[in-house]
């Protein structure tokens, strides 16, 4: 950064009123998205997806199949984008990287002892470096929620900063696991910590804990991004992950992005959906829009 940024006192981050946040969210969800704006929105959604498989039973074969889907969402319909990235475990990065060669789809890897983050500093650094060395374009780290809830904000800050360093050129997404942080005040606080520590993206959830991403949580994070942008001039991306599986809900998220951060964030450089089943629902809606009839999932590939 060219200018020196003053790091704020994280004990006094702005307060959040939950009811007010929910009322604001309700306004987004009453927006009516029709016709060409709906089509435009749905294509944006597709292009923002981090197609994800994060399971113990993942194999190279499974990852290869998903990668093909990532680059060929539904070839029957011309003009569709690819997804933004696939998101896999570090051990699968190499496979994904090869499978996606030449497609423009990026490879993101979770790291830092995902999903719990309960490991040593050395292992988390090694985990990250392994993924980066295998070609990961993006790293999705998890924070140490226990340390955060203990009030050990410096620990959380330093850990993010050191992982950022280990990332090298890879972009760092910081996962908060908001479902474990309880309050919106905490979510605002951890957003500020992560951004000042160097996060390129902030991300809600691992997908392993319920609730995963919600609109209120995402709105708090978007507002934190906005305030940080005004304070520093640096853009930070947003990735809600888990729980967004319908086209309608995804479009409501985009409305929220559009009305909170504006046009600059409406691209997959700055906004992502972490999702595994969202793509097909969007594809069905696009097909419905094109054909005028409601669709069956039998006509859309599952990988």
């Amino acid at each position: 950064m060219s200018t020196k940024t003053t790091i704020p006192d994280f004990r006094v981050t702005p307060s959040i009123d939950q009811v007010g946040i929910e009322e604001r969210v309700a306004r987004f969800t009453t927006r009516s998205i029709k016709k060409e704006s709906k089509m435009q929105g749905m294509k944006m959604v597709l292009s923002m997806i981090d197609l994800t498989t994060l399971e113990g039973k993942d194999t190279e074969g499974k990852v290869q199949q998903m990668c093909y889907k990532a680059a060929h969402l539904h070839d029957v319909i011309p003009g569709l984008p690819t997804v933004a990235a696939v998101c896999v475990y570090p051990s699968m990065v190499k496979t994904a990287k090869e499978a996606l060669k030449g497609t423009g789809v990026k490879v993101a890897s979770v790291s830092t002892a995902f999903p719990s983050g309960q490991s040593t500093h050395e292992i988390k650094i090694a985990d990250t470096k392994f993924a980066v060395d295998n070609g990961a374009d993006e790293i999705d780290m998890v924070i140490s929620r226990g340390e955060f809830l203990k009030g050990n904000y410096n620990f959380v800050f330093d850990e993010i900063a050191s992982i950022k360093e280990a990332c090298g050129k890879a972009r760092l997404k910081v996962i908060f696991e908001t479902g474990e942080l309880s309050t919106l005040d905490n979510i605002r606080k951890v957003s500020d910590i992560a951004m000042y520590a160097g996060a390129d993206f902030i991300k809600t959830s691992t997908g392993k804990i319920s609730p995963a991403a919600t609109m209120p949580v995402t709105l708090v994070m978007l507002e934190a991004i906005r305030d940080y942008y005004y304070a520093t001039g640096r853009m930070v991306g947003m990735k809600p992950a888990g729980g967004i599986s319908t086209s309608k809900l995804a479009l409501q998220y985009l409305i929220m992005v559009n009305e909170t951060l504006g046009a600059d964030w409406l691209s997959n450089e700055w906004f992502r959906f972490g999702a595994s089943s969202l793509a097909n629902d969007v594809l069905m809606q696009i097909a419905k829009q094109n054909t005028g009839v409601y669709q069956s999932s039998d006509y859309f590939s599952k990988d």
Partner: peptide, 9 residues
């Protein structure tokens, strides 16, 4: 009459 939000967590 006074109104105040009630947080629900």
């Amino acid at each position: 009459t006074t109104w105040h939000p009630i947080e629900n967590i």
